[in-house]
Design a protein around this nucleic acid. Structure first.
Lengths: 190, 190
DNA sequence: CATAAATTTCAGAAATTACTGAAACTTGTG
DNA sequence: CACAAGTTTCAGTAATTTCTGAAATTTATG
């Protein structure tokens, strides 16, 4: 591996974190490299930058494509495929959320639904189902929220983040404002 | 493994998902078993239920404790340690969020901060730093939101979820209400 | 449609991670 | 404090995952 030190640290860190994020080391490193590079890279650039085999690069790029985390680019008069990551970090976040949900949440939700269709054959099963139902309910509330929020434009999403817990206060505030309004009294501005 | 079919399916599913969630199969299975069981279980109960070695159970319980995902209970006149999961699924969610953040986000944030302290030694490094800064900014916004929201009581959290994207509309509504209030006009109720 | 460049596939090797059983350790009790 | 019940540790083994290099396939072009 022969990269500028800063880039190398970043790449190595993503490699190490890879396993915690459910991807492998190489995939993490390649992603980091593409993310931080100023230019799209082709497979051989990656082979050279990370000192890994050509086939490993091929497999890993395929994995990153399956995650929709890289985009392929073409350079005029060059047959090779070049890769980058999308520029917009908010868009990357949306993709990550979508893919992780697909892989980590949806399968469980469908198993829960299936198991909750069954008739319990014992008291122990009845209790288990009650617990599964709690889990299902929570996950469905979370995914409903996610489905709602994922369509937001970046700016709105940022607003929502900045608002944070104040949302609940805002709700109270609204109620107060409304009732004040009804009494035709001047409300405070938040 | 000799469990009621429903429980067994649930346990096996959690085992399979384990790797995607950054825990291993056994840990996933034990968690599922404890989660759905009506009674606390001791290590030997788990050995029997899942047909795995005593030492594996010990190691896996240790891991689950490190995640704060199980609680130890004691039964009068019984020296053995018994384990359950917390009852409240919302509390479980909070714990999961906290632990995943600690393992999956915080280390990266600290690496990013460190790398952004360095002075870039080339144009390539300068560009890389700009990209890292974008990533850092996004993660900091997200963790700030999280730090804010994590203190909410379950009921408020549920409200926030139900609200979802409507929050942004609510904001608009508030503005309208406020200005209407100023004009001493009867505002609409949401 | 032949050729050459680029890419992918895949079987086996290497590396990593998970699991077991035996031994060591801890803790409560007579 | 000796014993027994319970728990943990750890070295070796098993299982899984990742990586490689050679061969096969695809694709653009003259």
């Amino acid at each position: 591996m022969n990269l500028p030190p800063l880039l190398q640290s970043f790449v190595l860190h993503f490699g190490e974190m890879g396993s915690r994020w459910g991807i492998n080391r190489t995939v993490g490193q390649i992603y980091a490299l593409l993310y931080a590079s100023s230019q799209p890279l082709c497979a051989d650039d990656i082979v050279e930058a990370l000192s890994i085999s050509r086939s490993n690069v091929s497999m890993s790029l395929r994995e990153l494509q399956a995650w929709n985390l890289v985009v392929m680019k073409h350079i005029p008069d060059d047959r090779r495929d070049y890769f980058t990551t999308p520029d917009d970090v908010w868009q990357i976040l949306r993709t990550l959320a979508e893919e992780r949900k697909k892989r980590e949440v949806d399968p469980t939700l469908s198993v829960l639904r299936e198991l909750l269709m069954q008739r319990p054959g014992s008291e122990e099963e009845r209790h288990a189902q009650a617990r599964l139902a709690e889990m299902q309910s929570l996950i469905e509330q979370l995914t409903k929220w996610y489905d709602d929020v994922k369509h937001l434009e970046t700016e709105q999403l940022a607003t929502l983040l900045t608002l944070g817990a104040k949302v609940t206060k805002l709700l109270d505030a609204k109620d107060r404002i409304v009732s004040l309004g009804r009494k035709r009294t001047e409300p405070k501005t938040s």
